[in-house]
Design a protein around this nucleic acid. Structure first.
Ligand code: ZN
Ligand code: ZN
Ligand code: ZN
Ligand code: ZN
Lengths: 142, 142
DNA sequence: GACTGAGACGTTATAATATTACACCCGTGA
DNA sequence: TCACGGGTGTAATATTATAACGTCTCAGTC
């Protein structure tokens, strides 16, 4: 692994922002870095702490605004059942991500593709799906 | 209070508790009633408010303890993405419920059966799944 | 009856998560 | 110049949830 200052994921984020005419400002970029560097889901207030040593004093809206931006671009996902956030190494504009969270080591694996509900109620139009599986990953079983 | 006035779902809850040797105390029963009567997901603090006119003054732990009990028995489900709770009219000891939440009218429809992940990562053992679909129900489309 | 342990509940306080509202700055274009 | 919009700073508050500890009651037991 190279010690490049920008990870591939970060570079992809910059490219995506360029395409969309969005601005990956220093704060947004820093939050994305922190989420990507973490080895599991990150809490908003942990990000806030991590941001503290930075320029100004970070307040909750700072991190929540950055997260909202990144969520909108699909660069991070929220783990609803944990109130935590994970970086997305894939690139998908929209659509739900299917998350597999290990309760032992906290690792998160993401699968793409429509979760494809088996039995959608008659007439129901799905706009957004939250699919989160909790269990034990291969590494933690032995 | 005659038992004949209870709804089918409440009666089923009593039966379930009997089977499991659990106690459906007045508080737990009242919380279950409130959740079942609601026409959509209910917030914990709304339950708290609804409990206030009752005997003692209700405090957060009161309602959260009751919810924890009911969740454990599968009598209510938590909508993770909303931090809200819905009553379960089916009866399933375990396994995930698949929820369809209408963003327009707030109604929730529940489907049973394993969501059956399409592509589980190698070696991953699923213990609990959160599956919540947001969109528009048949009634709200016309 | 007295002792004991478990479970449910009461109560206080606090933790953890998230949003509102308003002010400021700065770049862009009329 | 001016207005405007996006991004940010800041203070305050709202919302959601848990910790910690005491009390009560009911079985089971001595
Ligand atoms: Zn993703
Ligand atoms: Zn693991
Ligand atoms: Zn159910
Ligand atoms: Zn509807």
């Amino acid at each position: 692994m190279s010690r490049d200052s920008t990870s591939p994921a970060l570079h992809a984020a910059e490219t995506l922002c360029d395409e969309k005419g969005e601005r990956l400002t220093p704060i947004r970029r820093r939050v994305l870095e922190l989420v990507l560097e973490a080895d599991g889901p990150v809490k908003a207030y942990d990000l806030l702490e991590a941001l503290k040593p930075g320029p100004g004093s970070a307040k909750p809206p700072t991190v929540y605004r950055a997260l909202e931006f990144l969520l909108g671009l699909g660069l991070v996902h929220k783990v609803e059942a944990l109130n935590a956030y994970v970086g997305c190494s894939h690139s998908h504009d929209t659509g739900g991500a299917e998350l597999f969270i290990c309760s032992d080591c906290g690792s998160v694996q993401e699968c793409h593709g429509a979760p494809a509900s088996t039995q959608t109620p008659d007439g129901f139009i799905i706009e957004r799906s939250v699919v989160e599986h909790f269990g034990h990953c291969g590494n933690c079983r032995s």
